[in-house]
Structure formats: structure tokens, C-alpha cells
């Protein structure tokens, strides 16, 4: 029956995912609760205005760091959200093929009448759901925190930002999946995805200040995640489309490369 591997994967991971979701909600609430004391310190803003541009880039481009948008970008969306989404997604992506292969369970699974393509696609679908759940948890946390401290922010924009996070995570999860499907080896898959993650993160950050790097900024998935400021302006469909398209391409590469190679034991 189609969907069996998808359902099994989610069932196996549901407890783990529940912990991620709970942790994410709490973390987001806590961060938002800090806001009132943060905005009460106007010196912070002056301090940041005098900071070198590279440092400013790290904290984000928003006009006012003490505004709700500036605060959430700085404290959540510039670093923590990508980190959490990417770690979870890369873990899932590298486990999908390479992890099962290393544990030896792939062999029995593929002796059943189940095509390699279907296996990869159902695992990828489970990853999409996982990112969706995490995105929802992040949104819930921010929304709940905002209610408590009366941050004035449109719910839709918050959703736009967490959905962008999910798409960014999915992109790296698909990369990890593709590497595992292409070569095998969970460690290699995580390692390469991690290096690409750090490199493209830095490219996006320095691309805002270093002139030489600026034209290359659109090569970074992070640019499409945050460059259009989803928290302030809503979801940029073009940018979301780039991340979605990238994920689709990587998953397609995972399918074709896995179909061509030997399955190790």
C-alpha cells in the first residue's frame, strides 16, 4: 500500500518530534518574554548603530533592533531558527537512506515489493511533515509569547517567517538525503550538509557588507530564507519558490542517484 513507509517513518519518529516541538515552543516563548526588558534599553540601539557594518549584518538588517520585528529577527530568526530547523532536517535526511543502510534494515525493506524511488519519496514526504510540525511549534511559541507581552505583530507574518524556516530546513534536509542516497554513509551526509550550511550562512551574512561577495549572495539558501524579510513583509513567493524548487531538485537527485547505485550492507 502506498504511504506505508511514510506512515512508519513518522510513527517511529513521533516521540522524538514531539520533544523537538515542545522544546521549540518553550524556547520561542522564553525569547519573546525577554522583549519588554530589551526594548526598555534605548542605548542598545545607539550601540548597534555605532557598530561596524559586519557586526550589524550578523544582527540583521532591520531598521530598529528594538522594534518587535528587529528583536525577533535578531534573537530568533537570524540564527536560532535556521539552526534548529537545519539540525532536525539534516538528521532526518541523512537517516532516511544512509541511516537505514548503515543499520542494515534497508536490505529487508528493499526485498519487499517497494521501489527505491518510492522509498526515497515517502521518506522525503515524512521530512516535509516534520518541518511543518516544527514550523507550527515555532509559530505557536512566538504567538503565545506575543500574547503574554503584547507584541504587536501580524500572525500571518510570523507564520511567513516560520514557514520560511521550514523551507530552509527542508532544503538542507533534502541535501542530506541526496548525499546519503548518492554515496551512502550517514556521517558523510551530515558532514557535507553541515559544511554547506555554515558556508552559505556566512556567504549570506557577509554578502550584505562585503562588496566582493554581494553578487554571490543569491547563491545562498539563507538569502531566500530571510533576505526578503518575511517577518516584516510576509512571505515572498518567489523566494519561497526558490527554496521549494531547490528541495524538489535535490529530492529528484536523491531518487535518480539511489536508483543507480549498489545497496551496501
Amino acid at each position: 500500500m502506498p504511504g506505508e513507509v511514510f506512515a512508519r517513518t513518522l510513527k517511529d519518529q513521533k516521540r522524538n518530534l514531539a520533544w523537538w516541538a515542545v522544546g521549540t515552543v518553550f524556547f520561542a516563548v522564553l525569547v519573546v518574554l525577554v522583549y519588554p526588558s530589551y526594548s526598555a534599553v534605548p542605548e542598545l540601539e545607539r550601540l548597534l548603530e555605532e557598530a561596524p557594518p559586519a557586526l550589524k549584518a550578523f544582527f540583521g538588517e532591520s531598521a530598529s533592533i528594538t522594534s518587535p520585528v528587529g528583536f525577533l529577527n535578531t534573537e530568533l530568526f537570524f540564527f536560532m531558527v535556521p539552526l534548529v530547523f537545519i539540525i532536525l532536517a539534516v538528521g532526518r535526511g541523512s537517516d532516511a537512506v544512509a541511516g537505514e543502510e548503515e543499520r542494515g534494515t534497508l536490505e529487508l525493506l528493499l526485498s519487499l515489493p517497494l521501489s527505491r524511488r518510492r522509498l526515497v519519496l515517502e521518506k522525503a514526504a515524512a521530512m516535509v511533515i516534520t518541518m511543518g510540525v516544527l514550523s507550527l511549534a515555532m509559530w505557536l511559541g512566538i504567538a503565545a509569547g506575543s500574547l503574554l507581552v503584547e507584541i504587536d505583530l501580524t500572525g500571518v507574518y510570523k507564520a511567513a517567517a516560520t514557514i520560511s524556516g521550514a523551507l530552509l530546513g527542508l532544503t538542507f534536509g533534502a541535501l542530506a538525503l541526496a548525499i546519503g542516497a548518492w554515496r551512502g554513509g550517514r556521517g558523510i551526509s551530515i558532514g557535507i550538509s553541515g559544511v554547506v550550511g555554515v558556508a552559505t550562512y556566512l556567504l549570506n551574512v557577509f554578502g550584505t557588507t562585503v562588496n566582493v561577495l554581494e553578487p554571490f549572495r543569491p547563491l545562498s539558501p539563507f538569502y531566500y530564507y530571510i533576505g526578503a524579510e518575511p517577518l516584516a513583509k510576509g512571505l515572498n513567493l518567489g523566494h519561497a519558490g526558490v527554496l521549494t524548487g531547490l528541495s524538489v531538485i535535490l529530492i529528484a537527485l536523491a531518487v535518480t542517484s539511489f536508483d543507480r547505485r549498489d545497496v551496501a550492507k
Binding site: 517511529d12 543499520r103 542494515g104 534494515t105 536490505e107 529487508l108 528493499l110 526485498s111 519487499l112 515489493p113 517497494l114 521501489s115 550492507k265
Partner: peptide, 18 residues
């Protein structure tokens, strides 16, 4: 492959189960 596997029962030499 799918048709072959549908009609075949397989026990791996190094069995790994969930």
C-alpha cells in the same frame, strides 16, 4: 525488480530488523 520481489521471499544473511 518489483515483480520479482513480489514473487520472492528473502531472508538476508545478516538479518537486521527494526
Amino acid at each position: 525488480s518489483i515483480e520479482i520481489r513480489r514473487r520472492t521471499g528473502y531472508l538476508p544473511g545478516e538479518l537486521a530488523l527494526y
